[in-house]
């Protein structure tokens, strides 16, 4: 222990700070390189940390079975939007820091041998916000699912619509929701997997339109963000408000499933539905 941690009583390990993080739930120090092997679960309290998309894809699909679609689709800046930074600069920064072009990655894969269409949102890319590219990729994914008669799984993680694309981002709610209607008419299953956090225009469109809704434990899921609600009604929100168990008890989701059980649960479901 260093003199500093002895003084403050904290349990910071004697390693550079970019190599570890604290569990947001229990404060346990987690070594970054151990996280993938532990599926980004806290080794002490089992808290479900946010999972990077490629780890998520590996978790849900059979080895090397994922084939990505539309990986080269990029955002435009239809509004020439500038707040404290210009939108194209924000995109560029997000591309560099996340190593993906947009806030969703879509493709086909096998899940315990079964072919599925899979979309995974990336909260690290501008808060997982849905602009034209996210809407278009997910809509194409669902249209492909219909062409190929395959089930669809979409893993949501998003703060909502991408404000920098203005009305175009709002219209992605319409575009994706009507695509779900076509999935329904084609009689193909669509499982919405809700992860922390799923709010705003994403929860108020395709994410809440699954045939089956599965949430990871303790995920924040809702229409309005907690801060907006607190400011509107001027009162503190109850403990556990808008968390997975709250949604389960209010009838909005079918189940809360531990990360380790997601793949077998999906496989079991599809074997019953298809």
């Amino acid at each position: 222990m260093s003199w500093f941690s002895r003084l403050t009583g904290s349990k910071k390990p004697d390693i550079p700070s970019d190599l570890w993080k604290k569990c947001p739930n229990c404060g346990e120090v987690l070594i970054n390189k151990d996280l993938p092997r532990n599926l980004f679960l806290c080794s002490k309290c089992d808290h479900h940390l946010r999972m990077p998309i490629w780890d998520r894809i590996a978790l849900l699909t059979d080895d090397n079975s994922f084939v990505e679609f539309d990986s080269d689709m990029e955002s435009q800046d239809p509004l020439n939007f500038i707040d404290s930074a210009a939108y194209p600069d924000r995109i560029k920064k997000a591309v560099e820091s996340t190593d993906s072009f947009e806030a969703v990655t879509v493709g086909e894969a096998r899940l315990e041998g079964r072919e599925i269409m899979l979309g995974v949102m990336n909260f690290d890319f501008m808060g997982g916000s849905m602009g034209s590219v996210v809407g278009e990729k997910l809509t194409r994914l669902m249209e492909r699912a219909i062409e190929r008669r395959m089930p669809t799984v979409i893993v949501s993680a998003s703060g909502g619509a991408r404000m920098q694309e203005g009305i175009y981002s709002l219209m992605q709610m319409a575009k994706t929701s009507q695509a779900v209607a076509l999935l329904n008419e084609a009689g193909l299953p669509y499982v919405s997997l809700l992860t922390d956090p799923t709010t705003g225009g994403v929860s108020a469109s395709f994410a809440m339109l699954g045939d089956v809704h599965i949430a990871e434990p303790e995920a924040l899921i809702g229409f309005a963000g907690p801060r907006v609600i607190e400011q509107t009604i001027r009162q503190k929100l109850p403990e556990g408000f808008q968390r997975s168990d709250f949604l389960l008890s209010h009838g909005h989701i079918d189940m809360v499933i531990h990360r380790r059980q997601l793949k077998p649960t999906l496989s079991k479901l599809f074997s019953l539905l298809l």
Partner: peptide
């Protein structure tokens, strides 16, 4: 409306299903 009752009763689902 962003409020407690609205969330309890599924504002997101109500909007999404209406659109769909």
């Amino acid at each position: 409306f962003p409020g407690i009752g609205a969330e309890e009763r599924g504002q997101s689902e109500a909007i999404a299903r209406s659109i769909m």
